[in-house]
Design a protein around this nucleic acid. Sequence first.
DNA 1: AAAAATATTCAACACCATGTCAAAAAATCA
DNA 2: TGATTTTTTGACATGGTGTTGAATATTTTT
Lengths: 193, 193
Amino acid sequence: MATDRRVKYTKKVLGEALIKFLNEKPIARITVKEICEEADINRATFYAHYTDQFDQLKKIEAEFIEGINSFLVSYLLTSPQTEIGVVVGIFEYVKQNKQLCRALLGRNGDIEFQEDLIRVISGCVLSEWQGRLNVDRRIAEYMMYILATGCIGVGTLWLEDDCSMAPEQLATLVVQLANNGIAPFLIDKQKQL
Amino acid sequence: MATDRRVKYTKKVLGEALIKFLNEKPIARITVKEICEEADINRATFYAHYTDQFDQLKKIEAEFIEGINSFLVSYLLTSPQTEIGVVVGIFEYVKQNKQLCRALLGRNGDIEFQEDLIRVISGCVLSEWQGRLNVDRRIAEYMMYILATGCIGVGTLWLEDDCSMAPEQLATLVVQLANNGIAPFLIDKQKQL
DNA sequence: AAAAATATTCAACACCATGTCAAAAAATCA
DNA sequence: TGATTTTTTGACATGGTGTTGAATATTTTT
């Protein structure tokens, strides 16, 4: 299949070039010409694989989504399912793809990619919760959306911090906040008196 | 000052044209040429006001941020500050600028704009909470980020629903979830036994 | 209402990334 | 090695870009 070493190499260096530029400027400012110059690949070759830089970005995004999805599926099948375990897994997967994720989620990232991620997280992680909620289906969807976007948002901040915090710690924070909100963290616990 | 009626009209129709296209495709796919044709404004006139379509978008975004910021500041100065009141105010302001917000936050929106919004919300609404949290400053920042991005995320979903839910209802949901998480909404409340 | 100031229009220009092509060269696979 | 596939090369027309100066139109000022 698509295992020709030349094709593999071409896509690899073109992808690296795009990611590099995405850390500097939005996709709209990036030209096919400069991607090819950076990667030292002929422009005609680029067009043999992608229609333009947006197409290239979409395909890289799709590859990542596919990757994290299969990771989650295999995780859910094998491991004992602690509530926090999956969240840790997600953050670890993100950390392993730090540079790519920073480009896709950061300042010059793509909102459609965010939405794809929300879909994956909702599908694999949050969907189970949804059935246990004693609220309207629509309200439950809104609540899941808040949690999913909050999760992605803090993940992005974490990436900008170069993933300095441990994935377990971040996952713990997220799960606690999702379960009980900020109340347990407040200073004035009048109940203690 | 900048009150010449011609300038005002030009910027207005150019802005409307850009927003219209943003509901159809990403800014990168939008050309200065088509913005001007849609607005029936000469291309040279466009360049008298903006360097390109990105510059135009940034200026429209900045205008909105400025608007919501002054709205929040005046709100915090005049009204009795109920915890939920400010959140209602934000959602109402968003609803009043539905079409614009949908373009700026939707599928073809801009992540930098999201970040600007996070900054405003954090600054005006969440900063007070932060001091009351019994956690590290860094952890508190992460928590605020989760709440802010969750808030924006659900706001975007709400916009796509054409703001069908009342702002008060949505604000209530957000505040409850932020304060106590999903626990109070769960079906199996074993504590009741 | 006329004059002065300012904004917009118009036409034309060079520039450059784009997307495509056919033929040659290079690398891979069997 | 020989056949196949990919990449390179150079060339081409196309179209949006950004700028310019003069003409025209509109607003503001006196």
